[in-house]
């Protein structure tokens, strides 16, 4: 049931048009951060206001929405945002990646490959990949405009000189279509290879920083690296303890204060689907049938 006191998907139509224009510009110039007049939303900045505005601008009454946080549908913030759209847009919601037409995510890309026609909306805290090298926005905009990305590689060089490898594990910077360097939002670098050549549309919304950027389908995305220190996606060196999957991204769960740990798929829908199909892991309960 949608709440009749608000327009469909909360935002007024003029605001949605403004956001759609920014999205279209972002799709036309992949990886370029389009400034937009972000609105105050009924959740705090940093909790997905950018993603929520992008989702609101994309939703139609026929859409089916999935919301995940850390890969899971049942995390508190995901539940909160899903409820928000159930209430203000009345759209159907799902936890199944394959069923969703719009997926809003924080920090993960679903394990199941996305398909054409789907939209993946990322929540972005800091859209500027150069921000931690240069705090001034006026300067970073100029660096993008002039393609001055040497400093980014200096950072990676320093990592290797100091630690022997590139010590960026999430929000790992990428170069889009050989032009803009882009922050893929704080997804683990494990997910970076899924950014490129993806059949779905990927939209990135940063509410507090008032930026939208986008990856159109099948776009070229390269994680920055050196020839002799190539980018390597990484994950915990375990199988999922519930579904046995050896290739999914895993959460580490502390089970006691004696150093006990278990590892489970961060993508809960993926894990459940596998378990329903009969896959089992190290800590799966014994079959009772």
């Amino acid at each position: 049931m949608s709440d009749q006191a608000y327009n469909f998907a909360y935002l007024d139509e003029a605001t949605k048009r403004m956001i759609r224009r920014a999205i279209l510009k972002g799709l036309a110039v992949p990886g370029y951060q389009v400034p937009f007049a972000s609105r105050e939303m009924p959740m705090p900045y940093g909790w997905g206001t950018g993603g929520v505005q992008v989702t609101a601008a994309c939703l139609t009454p026929e859409d089916t929405l999935k919301v995940i946080d850390q890969g899971a549908d049942d995390t508190t913030n995901a539940v909160s945002i899903r409820t928000f759209f159930e209430r203000t847009a009345g759209v159907a919601t799902t936890t199944q990646t394959a069923q969703a037409s719009v997926i809003q995510t924080r920090h993960r890309i679903p394990e199941e490959p996305l398909r054409a026609g789907q939209i993946l909306v990322y929540q972005v805290p800091i859209p500027e990949p150069l921000r931690f090298l240069e705090p001034r926005e006026s300067e970073t905009r100029k660096m993008h405009a002039l393609e001055e990305y040497g400093l980014m590689h200096v950072k990676l060089y320093e990592d290797i000189a100091r630690h022997g490898e590139i010590s960026t594990a999430y929000a790992y910077p990428v170069r889009v279509e050989g032009r803009y360097v882009m922050d893929p939002s704080p997804i683990p670098k494990f997910d970076n290879p899924k950014l490129g050549n993806c059949p779905a549309i990927q939209l990135f919304g940063a509410g507090r920083e008032q930026r939208i950027y986008a990856l159109p389908p099948y776009c070229d995305v390269v994680s920055l690296d050196f020839e002799d220190h190539p980018f390597t996606p990484s994950k915990a060196d375990h199988d999922c303890d519930l579904c046995g999957c050896a290739t999914s991204y895993l959460d580490e769960v502390i089970t006691d204060d004696q150093g006990g740990r278990m590892f489970v798929c961060s993508d809960t829908d993926f894990c459940e689907t596998r378990r329903d199909a009969g896959h089992r892991g190290r800590l799966s309960p014994e079959e009772t049938a």
Binding site: P42, F84, V253
Partner: peptide
């Protein structure tokens, strides 16, 4: 930093996840 922890995550009386309406 961890999804689940010994002793559990306890939300408690928080404004988090309330919609600011």
């Amino acid at each position: 930093t961890f999804k689940d922890i010994p002793g559990g995550q306890i939300l408690g009386p928080t404004f988090d996840y309330t919609h600011r309406l």
